[in-house]
């Protein structure tokens, strides 16, 4: 079966006066029908850029410098702007970190929802309104029929993010890209929003690309997780496998550095150093200066993603070596 979304060797570059920065370097992954793919990584790893590239909203001078993006078997990375605009909203919905940037403060929630529904679907005004109320109700806005005529600033932060989710789902898209949807919210509200997002997407059969730096959110929400490091995929696989038995040394270090409620450790595992800036990505494996298991080959050649047991892929010479030995 063709995957819903397929990203192949995606390269995103920023030409600057000191040379071209490669912010995404040959990123490849698929999202299956109805699947929730988590995308994690440190800030600057390229999570948001991946999302922006898919929906065709890269901010200039950023540009796709290579690779392909396919939505249900059709290429979308080279579509004219007008066609891409029709795909956004209709087939790919978006939820951003700050709910205020996705809502227009000058229009009521009803106006925005109805407009979105009617741009993309052939329904009457009344039908659209009924749908809008249903959606708001579904995302957990109390007294939705009454509150739908309020302006965005009448809602609290958590309620606003619910409205944004309703808006993203209004045209029944096949894919929802959610970029840090809970980062700006209170802790006690984050879980509510994640729950709503997950349930409603499952109900409607929409796939989700969930971008976050919070492993806990991924653990609870995603089916598979992709780990980005310095613009490259380090590891991708089923959430449980990756979290409980990370194979890539970076993922392993990352997992060890997260304090948990259950374990009491005197010290956290610590990855030395920090992620390189885009203008100073080391040769070979981007992680090699910080890697506890680095060896000669890592410093000269870049490891490609190799398939591992259980639908997992890892980009690390340790496993390529293993594969060679076996093969």
């Amino acid at each position: 079966m063709t995957p819903l979304l397929s990203v192949r060797d995606l390269i995103v570059e920023f030409p600057t006066r000191r040379g071209t920065l490669r912010a995404l370097d040959r990123v490849s992954f698929d999202i299956a029908e109805g699947e929730v793919l988590g995308m994690v990584g440190e800030s600057g790893a390229g999570k948001s850029l991946t999302g922006a590239a898919i929906i065709g909203l890269l901010e200039p001078p950023g540009r796709i410098a290579g690779g392909e993006i396919w939505l249900r078997g059709a290429r979308i990375d080279n579509l004219p702007r007008e066609k891409m605009r029709r795909i956004r909203g209709r087939r790919i919905g978006m939820v951003f970190q700050d709910p205020l940037t996705s809502l227009n403060p000058l229009y009521t929630v009803a106006q925005q929802l109805i407009e979105t529904i009617r741009t993309h679907m052939d329904v009457s005004e009344r039908e659209a309104r009924a749908r809008a109320v249903g959606l708001l109700d579904r995302v957990g806005i109390p007294a939705a029929a009454r509150r739908i005529d309020d302006y965005p600033h009448h809602f609290s932060g958590g309620m606003r993010q619910r409205v944004v989710i309703a808006l993203a789902l209004a045209a029944e898209p096949e894919l929802v890209i959610a970029d840090e949807p809970t980062t700006a919210l209170d802790v006690s509200v984050q879980a509510q929003i994640i729950d709503v997002l997950k349930e409603i997407c499952a109900e409607r059969g929409a796939s989700v690309m969930l971008i976050t730096h919070d492993m806990g959110v991924i653990a609870e929400t995603a089916d598979r997780v992709a780990v980005l490091y310095a613009g490259r995929l380090a590891e991708i696989g089923p959430v449980r496998d990756v979290i409980q038995a990370a194979e890539h040394p970076y993922t392993a270090g990352l997992m060890g550095s997260i304090p948990t409620l259950t374990q009491e450790a005197a010290r956290l595992t610590q990855i030395p150093g920090s992620m390189p800036r885009l203008n100073a990505i080391p040769q070979g494996c981007a992680f090699n200066p910080r890697c506890p298991r680095v060896f000669d080959q890592c410093r000269t050649a870049r490891p490609e993603l190799v398939a591992r047991a259980g639908a997992r892929q890892v980009a690390c010479w340790l496993y390529e070596k293993e594969a060679q030995n076996v093969g």
């Binding site: 932060g157 802790v187 879980a191 492993m215 806990g216 653990a219 449980r240």
Partner: peptide
Amino acid sequence: RMLLDAVPDLALSGRRRRPVTGEI
């Protein structure tokens, strides 16, 4: 208790969290 319940479960213990209600 509610705050504790809201912490995502990284251990994948399958603990079903009690959904927290309301906002500050």
